[in-house]
Write a protein that binds this DNA or RNA. Structure first.
Lengths: 340, 340
DNA sequence: ATGAAAGCGCTAACAC
DNA sequence: GTGTTAGCGCTTTCAT
């Protein structure tokens, strides 16, 4: 018996089953027009020699790769920072969960430098992936432009800074911010402050603007603000700052949960009780919101659903190219816990 | 001018540069034996028409894919659970960060079912990836066996339950546990309890065993234990349980930070002060450890380094097949914060 | 319904 | 040093 070490090919199956390569291909790809008896024979042969279609050959012969690039472009943060952030973790989870049902798998890219961004584009250009899921938060990110320019299938996680013909999903950030404002006002808070995100993150801007406008509608047009960078430490620092500038503050809206958690810590250290002395509302409803003491009242963002929709949009675009860009905006909602 | 919509191939470059495909290939792949002048011409042509080598064709012609499967096999938890866990996030970050320097990218697999596990194996079998990084915590996981059996390159994150010829990285869990024991004893704690992880997770067993042995050496052979499943809620429940069974406890060692955070909450609700009434030590040194109140004293696990080493091992195995399996064990260390 | 054969784009062995 | 050529394993017309 002359056994082959080489991994089995279509040809091998054909030989064992006594049919042509074409027939085996048809069976393997589930085409209807194959005689039942032959089909059984082929399947048996496949099983016997443990045949698996070679991906590269398939792709080369004109099929899709079944892979998508998932590009995380969080500022120029290190890998640790990006993957430590529940924001990216939840999105990744949503993407994986949706894609797996379609037999598609995401390849991870950390695009934290110009070179890394180009590499992600190249990956798709070379046909190593059928398209890209772009999760970039910064306004000046060139990534979306690169993909549009190259005519490569891509979908964004958030509205692009410069208007571009590209699909995206996003959250109604202003709505979320106004939900927070309403809540604080209805609690009777009268000296309200806010901890905003970086000025170059559109979502952070939207939350700030939305919050201010909502508070203005409630008769509080001047909302003191301190900026953080979405980390717990920056939230703590911002709170400290606010505490000295506005000693009699009685409420704070933070642009994400991590900063809200930092604020909680600063408030405790300052001897203020939450929510009695100061009410606190976060944003995202991610893990830290239920770990903190007290647990955070927060504006929930359906990240997993948004990630799934983003994936769906991309797959649709790949399957039917040439359609015009689509976008889906999700609504946030208030999650009541102990802090406000 | 007859411009082509088709993406440019080696052939196109050759035509523009007026050389043969082979020469272009040599230049593109950085082979030395090419005349400098020709090389320049080729490079110019590449640049001009925006040529990018097609991955599939390359792979088919015998090269590696430059992709690795990163298989997360956390119990049968949902995607949300896995990606919400900082444990997987940190490992993913470490893998990405190490691999990117080599131009390799990980493709994500969530192997939470038998079918999903087979799919991950198939992915590598088909040549869609050169090998697999297996992060599975459960003892009864069949994944390692599947890869070994198929003779596919793979490296594990933790020691396999059944001994198998496969490389892996791991932590000296017992050492970590004894570090915790030493700390608690040196604080003068005399009624020490522990919150252990699931019994089917070898790492959890090692921590429990190591802790008990170390405490026995310190003259405390009987350590009450409650089991959790590594979530915050389970830690809170376990702590409650322990509190009723051992009302006079003065220290608790939890097998991970999340459970320690849950314990902290239960202790606060029970009116105990940490660390004065009860000292608490966690394990991992992940995000929740510095978010909790008070901040957790914990046993740090260098997950990112371990992930990088795991990647290194796999790449080495792919580049030089047939070597015998290697394993690297890392040492944990104590991180002193406020809880003990 | 099935088979024969022509590529898909690239690499590498082999000639020159 | 450079060009020629034979595959790599598969899909897909095109005949039959």
């Amino acid at each position: 018996m002359k056994s082959i070490a080489r991994t089995p090919t279509l040809e091998d199956v054909a030989k064992v089953a006594g049919v042509s390569r074409a027939t085996v291909s048809r069976v393997v790809n589930g085409q209807a027009s194959v005689d039942a008896a032959l089909k059984r024979k082929v399947l048996a042969a496949v099983d016997k020699i443990g045949y698996r279609p070679n991906s590269a050959a398939r792709v080369l012969a004109g099929r899709r790769t079944g892979e998508l690039a998932l590009v995380l472009s969080g500022s120029d943060g290190s890998a640790e920072e990006v993957f430590g952030d529940p924001f990216f973790g939840r999105i990744t989870g949503g993407v994986v969960k949706h894609l797996r049902t379609k037999g598609i798998h995401p390849t991870l890219f950390l695009a934290d430098s110009e070179a890394a961004r180009r590499e992600a584009v190249d990956h798709v250009r070379r046909g190593a992936a059928d398209g890209a899921l772009l999760v970039s938060t910064h306004a000046d990110d060139i990534l979306p432009g690169l993909f549009v320019e190259a005519g490569l299938p891509a979908v964004l996680f958030a509205r692009p800074a410069l208007h571009a013909p590209i699909s995206y999903v996003d959250l109604a950030h202003e709505v979320g911010a106004s939900l927070a404002a309403d809540r604080l006002v209805s609690r009777g808070c009268r000296r309200v402050v806010t901890i905003a995100g970086p000025t170059d993150v559109p979502a952070a801007q939207d939350r700030l603007t939305g919050f201010r406008q909502a508070m203005a509608r409630h008769g509080q047009p001047h909302i003191p603000v301190a900026h953080g960078n979405f980390t717990q430490d920056s939230g703590e620092t911002a709170m400290l700052d606010l505490l000295t500038k506005v000693p009699d503050l009685d409420a704070v809206f933070a642009a994400n949960d991590l900063m809200a958690a930092g604020a909680l810590r600063a408030l405790r250290d300052a001897g203020r009780t939450v929510p009695d002395d100061v009410a606190v509302i976060g944003f995202d409803d991610s893990a830290p919101a239920s770990t903190s003491v007290p647990r955070l009242t927060t504006i929930a963002q359906p990240l997993e659903k948004m990630a799934a929709e983003m994936s769906r949009l991309l797959v649709a675009q790949i399957e039917a190219p040439g359609q015009s860009p689509q976008c889906t905006i999700f609504d946030p909602h208030l999650v009541e816990r102990a802090s406000a």
